[in-house]
Nucleic acid binder design. Sequence first.
DNA 1: CTATTTGCAAACTATTTGCAGACCT
DNA 2: AGGTCTGCAAATAGTTTGCAAATAG
Lengths: 150, 150
Amino acid sequence: MNTENKNANIVLKKFENFIRKKKLRNTNERNIILKEIYKNEGHFNPDDLYIRLKLAGYNISRATVYNTLQLLEEANLIIKHYFKENSAIYEKVNFSSPHYHLICIKCGKVTEFEEKEIKQLVKRIVGKYGHKHLNHSMYIYGLCKLCNSF
Amino acid sequence: MNTENKNANIVLKKFENFIRKKKLRNTNERNIILKEIYKNEGHFNPDDLYIRLKLAGYNISRATVYNTLQLLEEANLIIKHYFKENSAIYEKVNFSSPHYHLICIKCGKVTEFEEKEIKQLVKRIVGKYGHKHLNHSMYIYGLCKLCNSF
DNA sequence: CTATTTGCAAACTATTTGCAGACCT
DNA sequence: AGGTCTGCAAATAGTTTGCAAATAG
């Protein structure tokens, strides 16, 4: 079995547990949406996903897409970002290598980077405040090389 | 002169420089908005600000408020956050102590924290990617003490 | 069975835009 | 004087909601 399928199976399992624990219902729509997300790479917004499902032949409403994305976020299977207003951007949780974002406030370009140190730092902070840690994001705002030279 | 006024003067000066450098115009509205922001503490959204200006007797349109907030962000005098969708949240740049945010994905509570290490880390990363650094944010998502116990 | 979930369309809300007039430089 | 900036109202875009029908448990 390839890595992609393995990951997809892990998240389906996790989602099933989450659903059971919360006494929610295991619907086709929810599973289809989760699979569609894990079939693809990179960032996506709710409408991207809605269109992709449409093209794949599924008749799943926007309401259900939004609804399910919220559930998946609570289940810690996707992360929600807000690079700019009026559009939430999601990405799959990457179990092996969390990464962070450099954002150009001029052109909106998003550059990803990794940084092992951050994980330790976050662990310490969360402990201090008694939170249950689900996820974390780091956004560095500035001007990218190109925008900075004009 | 108290600290508040001193800070307000520094930012007015900085904004003036920014305006000049960009060959923009030094309008009353822009200065009124900037002063109003620095008169207050904590987070605010564009509409909060609009209402506050209204109540203070200024007839400044939403369009101008949005417009100016964008300028102030570019001038690095305010930071924009997206704690949840459909509403940008701003705060003044705090020249002495940058701080970061723990966000509860259940109840939306935002807890601020400081962490000196982060600044160094960010400096290193930005250098690596050739960005011009303006600001950075760290968001840690999870469940706050209260939400985690239910 | 029955309470949750769904699809649909309409509603809502934050932000942006177009335009005519006002105002910096 | 000339182009930028403003206020206003209408337009836009993302998300949520209300309701009737479908469906999981």
